[in-house]
């Protein structure tokens, strides 16, 4: 019996999300009185692999295989399922990101293991195994019993605190014989920006809505985000209009984020928008309309014109940053 966590890497590196995931999985292993193994697929150096130990993984298995360079859902599922069987894993944990969403459901069928998708807490009970997750796009939460012996959980990002120690894990580099017939997707072209802070990873997000009135007014949003070391986001009409890139569209049909601080500027707070940000730890809203629904979910509010309020906030941030 054990707990298995799949830790994805980004160009050979782990990030906060990985450490959150391992911290969660380690706490899960502790609940079950067992140990945690982390599985890494792809080229990651030993120092980086070892870093997972600090968050509670007692063993790291690293698989490098040319055929697994790009995500192929079926092939990754086969690898993770094999590892889970080999370890007798009772709980398998993945991130609730694109990769986790691609692989977890396939694993579920392959191992006949129920999935708790997008959980945000440790199980409230082991017998029956009961997890807690958002449903109805954040308008409610549900307690769900997973009835199978093996369970798969995907962890919502930014929902679990990192716990760092000084464990030194055992590292095993495994060569894996992959059935080449499993890899059926061919990546013909990649277009990506490396090094940019991803909206889903950002701890601070400054977001603009239609109340910004014109794409030409975005400079203070970007400046404030940069000053705070955060990322920029927007409401759907803003990306639909082409004022901002689609990756910034936040909400039910766009990105779902949970930063520590979400600053909504000129956003009315439609339920579909809030569905994407309601798990943020602190929401600040700036709006000309004191009755805008966004103030129902905000912890702090300022009633005023964005173009007048933002320069003041930027100055105030500069003051504290230089102090």
């Amino acid at each position: 019996m054990s707990v298995l966590v799949y830790t994805e890497n980004w160009e050979g590196k782990f990030k906060k999300l990985s450490y959150e995931l391992v911290s969660y999985a380690a706490a899960m292993a502790e609940m079950l009185n067992t140990s945690l193994t982390a599985l890494s697929i792809g080229e990651v150096d030993s120092a980086e692999l070892e870093s997972l130990g600090r968050f509670g993984a007692s063993k790291i298995v690293s698989i490098e295989n040319e055929k697994l360079k790009n995500l192929d859902n079926q092939a990754y599922t086969a690898v993770i399922a094999d590892m889970a069987k080999k370890l007798g894993a009772r709980v398998i944990i993945l991130a609730n990101n694109n990769t986790g969403k691609a692989v977890a459901p396939r694993l579920s069928v392959k191992l006949k293991a129920g999935v708790g998708a997008g959980v945000s807490r440790l199980p409230s009970s082991l017998e029956p195994f009961t997890v807690y997750k958002r449903v109805y796009s954040g308008n409610a939460y549900a307690h769900i019993v997973i009835k199978t012996e093996v369970r798969i959980l995907t962890l919502a990002q930014n929902s679990f605190d990192i716990a760092e120690g000084d464990n030194k894990p055992e590292i095993e580099k495994l060569s894996y014989d992959l059935d080449p017939a499993l890899v059926k997707t061919e990546v013909r072209d990649v277009n990506k920006q490396s090094g940019k802070l991803l909206l889903t990873d950002a701890e601070i997000v400054v977001s603009g809505g239609r109340g910004m009135r014109s794409p030409d007014n975005w400079a203070p949003i970007v400046e404030l985000a940069d000053l705070l070391g955060g990322a920029t986001a927007c409401s759907r009409p803003v990306s639909d209009e082409g004022w901002r890139p689609h990756e910034e569209h936040t909400g039910q049909t766009g990105k779902i984020i949970a930063p520590d601080l979400y600053i909504a500027v000129g956003i009315s707070g439609a339920t579909q928008h809030i569905a994407g940000v309601s798990a943020s730890k602190c929401i600040v809203a700036i709006n000309t309309d004191k009755d805008a629904p966004v103030f129902d979910v905000a912890k702090y509010g300022m009633v005023g014109d964005a173009m007048k309020v933002l320069p003041g906030l930027i100055e105030a941030v500069k003051n504290v940053k230089s102090a």
Binding site: A142, H143, I146, A285, D296
Partner: peptide, 19 residues
């Protein structure tokens, strides 16, 4: 493989503090 045993509403938000 799974069963929803109960629902609950999101925690009540405290009122917005206007500055």
């Amino acid at each position: 493989l799974t069963e929803i045993v109960s629902y609950e509403m999101p925690p009540e938000k405290e009122a917005c503090r206007f500055i």
